[in-house]
Design a protein around this nucleic acid. Structure first.
Lengths: 212, 212
DNA sequence: GTCTATATATTGATAGAC
DNA sequence: GTCTATCAATATATAGAC
């Protein structure tokens, strides 16, 4: 999702102008630069040197903030996760009908955003090679799924019929279709119209009622 | 998809034992090694040295077969593409009902296969950074979609009702859900049961009939 | 066509001045 | 905390013997 990638001041925002605030600024600037470089080059090909240059600091300064390239990447992913959760909770709060229209916009925004889809793919690949990070990412997906569940439950109650998928499975399909359509749209924009996600989800919901 | 990654003898298979056959063997062996190393390390972190060592040849020998790391990667992706097309056409030939059950198996096989999903993600990321390769990959997806279309058309005719999605959109959703579920299953196997793809597609088809 | 040896550049990370 | 300078390791790619 097109996450604004906002900084996360740990334990309260330090007063502007203070030494702690300056440190926070470089810290956040490094994460911004990391997002740009990791997205452009990929994790493997990205170099800490270029990240430092992009952030406008020296190589050595990076190691005063992070243990190394890996730690920097993990910190970046952490920041994106909390931003994505905030974003999701804000947009899902109003119930499913309003959310459906919103989700369409999130598909296109995520696909058309320069870095979001790229970094998500980098994160998934990193997770495939680092079991610990994989567990973190899976837990994050679980939380997203959990946030989706109340809306699905309410919709099922509203329609008052038995479904051929469990609520959790519906949430999984919704999440899977989301990332799948984002990647397809990114590859060939014309093949994924802006409202396809919403229409597909509606058809799915209509078809879930078991037929006898 | 769990593509066997078979060699592609250009212009007919050379006689076994001939010099051309020996060349073909190393060529194919290099592609096999490339598949293993690119999947394990990722494109950026993979080194031609390790690929050579895995294939049991020297670094210099790689450059007698390929122009470099990039060319090797592209050749590998090319081989996987023709194998995937063969595979898809073979399994889709019998019509949709038989294909549906088969598709379920393809989701689990692709997700559980060691390299297929990894290399697919690497290919997508590479495509995001190389427009030419991106066009190739998009064209490949288009061919897959085209192969899916007859089955969808037949199913719509069988059900004899208007649909809220075009046939092409249904194909896109089917492809998108496929890759999305594969990635989710790879991350958290329990969240994606083996038959979820088929059940979701069935529900989608049931719900496509417009309601008035 | 395959090998060994090597040229050249870049990498992640560290040391020490300020 | 940020800098400059530098380390050792590794990268891609090439040259030349066989």
């Amino acid at each position: 999702m097109p996450v604004p990638d906002e900084p996360t001041p740990p334990g309260g925002t330090p007063r502007a102008g203070s030494r702690a605030a300056a440190r926070e600024r470089t810290h956040a600037g490094l994460l911004d630069a990391a997002a740009a470089v990791f997205a452009e080059k990929g994790y493997g090909a990205a170099s800490v040197g270029e990240i430092a240059r992009t952030a406008g600091v020296s190589v050595g300064s990076i190691y005063a903030h992070f243990a190394g390239k890996q730690d920097l990447f993990l910190a970046l992913m952490d920041r994106r996760r909390v931003a994505e959760m905030d974003d999701a909770r804000r947009h899902l709060a109003d119930g499913l009908p309003s959310a459906l229209h919103d989700l369409d916009h999130r598909v296109t925004a995520t696909a058309d955003d320069g870095r979001a889809a790229l970094l998500a793919a980098e994160a998934w690949l990193y997770a495939m090679r680092d079991p610990d990070f994989g567990a973190d990412l899976a837990a994050h997906q679980d939380r997203l799924r959990a946030d989706l569940l109340p809306l699905i439950r309410a919709e099922r109650a509203r329609r008052g019929a038995a479904w051929s998928l469990t609520d959790e499975e519906v949430a999984t399909v919704a999440l899977g279709l989301f990332s799948g359509l984002v990647q397809h749209r990114r590859l060939a924009r014309d093949s994924v119209p802006a409202d396809l996600y919403g229409r597909a989800l509606l058809a799915l919901l209509d078809g879930l009622a078991t037929r006898d």
